[in-house]
């Protein structure tokens, strides 16, 4: 039971990093990213290649420390985001949604077909955990990094930079008229958010210890993170945290329930869970679009009252 709790909390923490990253992109800036799994996978593979011991089967490994791998994972995901953002960020955000789906699919295809990078579908095994193989220690690492990401994003949200992002989301033309370089702010938010997704990918790789392209089905992960953010409250970092944990409880709990179905129905069970989460998303969008926690509005209203 305790082992399951550690497992549960570690994955919840990784999902929370992803939900926070998506909150920066969608919640604050209004940018669609349906390709979260692509940035996540690039981060995971980068970390895996840099931190594993040398192997003839895949690129590297280079046996580098955990933090080097995590940093490189952020850089790699950021470069990918920069490239795709450069092309699509000036267009309607629908194009970004389409392009990110494409990127996620192509990332998966590359890792599947270019066996020299990550040994194709056989994947990369033996990714070490930092400091100690004990999962409790790793949970601590995830918790510390989650806290750092949360504090950083909370600080950014309150900063002038964060205010510009929200201004762009609310009224692009007005921000432009105020002399803000809208495209640049958008691109920065998109790249930074994707870097955190890369970080989450590296955490996942170290936690599971083995990665293969099948772990990055472009859909379920991306979809779940969207539901987490929408349910928790987009625009609100605390909401993203709350949503990540709440939906992860619902998701894992539903696995518990469908686990009681007869074994022949197991493939159906995962579909039932997806259907339930999909319907939950529609219900939230229709009846409580602001999510559990509303976005905190800046001090504007307070100054007005004075």
């Amino acid at each position: 039971m305790e082992a399951y709790l550690v497992f549960f909390l570690t994955l919840a923490g990784i999902y929370a990093v992803l939900a926070l990253a998506l909150n920066l992109q969608w919640g604050l800036t209004g940018l669609f990213n349906f390709g979260i799994s692509g940035f996540f996978a690039v981060g995971a593979y980068t970390a895996a290649i840099l931190t594993t011991n040398p192997s003839p089967n895949h690129l590297g490994g280079f046996g580098l420390p955990f933090l080097v791998g995590a940093g490189a994972a952020m850089v790699a995901a950021g470069i990918l985001a920069f490239a795709i953002g450069l092309v699509t960020i000036r267009l309607r955000t629908d194009y970004l949604a389409i392009a990110t789906i494409g990127i996620a699919e192509i990332v998966r295809l590359v890792f599947m077909n270019e066996a020299w990078i990550g040994y194709g579908v056989r994947g990369i095994p033996g990714i070490p955990r930092p400091f100690s193989p004990d999962p409790v220690v790793f949970l601590g690492v995830v918790a510390v990094l989650l806290l750092l990401v949360f504090l950083a994003l909370e600080r950014l949200r309150r900063s002038p930079w964060g205010r510009v992002l929200r201004a762009i989301r609310e009224n692009e033309t007005a921000s432009l008229a105020a002399g803000k370089n809208v495209l640049r702010f958008r691109l920065e938010a998109f790249v930074l958010g994707s870097m955190f997704m890369g970080l989450a990918g590296s955490l996942y790789a170290h936690f599971v210890g083995f990665i293969s392209p099948e772990a990055f089905d472009p859909l379920y992960g991306t979809f779940l993170i969207w539901v987490m953010l929408i349910a928790g409250g987009s625009g609100n970092n605390k909401g993203a945290l709350l949503g990540a944990f709440a939906i992860w409880v619902v998701w894992s709990g539903s696995e518990f329930l469908t686990g009681m179905l007869p074994p022949g129905l197991s493939t159906q069970a995962s579909a039932v869970r997806i259907l339930l989460i999909g319907l939950l998303l529609q219900v939230i969008l229709l009846w409580r679009p602001e999510g559990l926690l509303k976005e905190e509005r800046p001090a504007l209203e307070k100054t007005r009252k004075k």
Binding site: W226, Q268, L275, L279, L281, L285, P289
Partner: peptide, 24 residues
């Protein structure tokens, strides 16, 4: 703009229904 998210969720739900009825 929420329609984009809704339709993404709908894609998942439709696929799940088909999987429940006809399997994979």
């Amino acid at each position: 703009v929420i329609l984009l998210i809704s339709s993404f969720g709908m894609a998942m739900a439709l696929r799940a229904v088909i999987q429940i009825i006809w399997g994979t």
